[in-house]
């Protein structure tokens, strides 16, 4: 479970409030206008931006003051998810051991994880030799391997074409769906939210609203969502 308890994020003349919780295993889209604070919200949950007020609770622990690496959270950025100088195997293995000291058993898990996302036997390849879609898959393999209870994605596949993006979203649902991980995904594309098919958080006027059922939300959009959808 992920809970934002009266959280306030302040940056210069910008502020964002959030007071809600997401149950374990939910797959939640975060949508809202550009500059509305979608990425800032994720950065605060991940620990890159300090909250001015309130508490963040994940996995029944207060993580508000924890450094990013100590939070039960894994992250997928829009790009630069892979270290260009490390092989795919090492890139994924970093998810298990930040010093790359793995047991043979753990290395086997790295290979399994790569196979899960359709990159079987590509351990030795360098990221530059992969297509954009394959790079996204490798990054997803690491997230699966880390198997942290909360997964955050910041416009993860927006550099990919529509068909590839849909494929990646399906892969995310298929693989993460089998775990009990909670997913929060920032997107600017309403179709992504619909494709995730679970809940949506709407950011509007400095407030991150509580997650609601995506279908219900889009069936009868509030004024803010109408304005965003155009």
């Amino acid at each position: 479970m992920l809970q934002l308890d009266n959280v306030v994020i302040r940056q210069q003349d910008f502020s964002l409030r959030a007071n809600w919780s997401v149950n374990a295993g939910r797959k939640v889209a975060i949508i809202g206008p550009s500059g509305g604070g979608k990425s800032t919200l994720l950065a605060a949950i991940a620990g890159f931006v300090a909250v001015s007020d309130g508490r963040i609770i994940a996995d029944s622990r207060d993580i508000t003051a924890l450094p990013p690496g100590a939070r039960p959270i894994s992250l997928l950025f829009q790009d630069h998810n892979l270290f260009a100088h490390l092989s795919l195997g090492d890139n994924v293995a970093l998810g298990l051991s930040p010093r790359l000291k793995l047991s043979p058993d753990q290395w086997r898990k790295v290979s399994e994880s790569l196979a899960t996302v359709g990159l079987e036997g590509m351990e030795a390849r360098k990221p530059a030799t992969l297509s954009g879609g394959q790079q996204s898959r490798a990054a997803l393999a690491r997230i699966l391997l880390m198997s942290r209870p909360v997964v955050l994605m910041d416009e993860p596949f927006s550099a990919l074409g529509p068909a590839m993006k849909a494929e990646m979203l399906d892969l995310v649902m298929k693989t993460l769906g089998q775990t009990k991980a909670t997913l929060l995904m920032v997107t600017h594309d309403p179709n992504d939210a619909i494709r995730l098919g679970d809940q949506t958080i709407l950011l509007d006027d400095g407030v991150a609203n509580a997650p609601v059922d995506t279908q219900t939300l889009f069936a009868d959009p509030p004024a803010a969502l109408k304005a965003y959808l155009g």
Partner: peptide, 22 residues
């Protein structure tokens, strides 16, 4: 890579050896 490494707990000497130095 700063944030990515932080989020995975790759810090200190490990960060230097694995990420920065190469």
């Amino acid at each position: 890579y700063g944030r990515l490494a932080q989020s995975m707990g790759v810090t200190g000497f490990g960060y230097f050896r694995l990420i920065l130095w190469p």
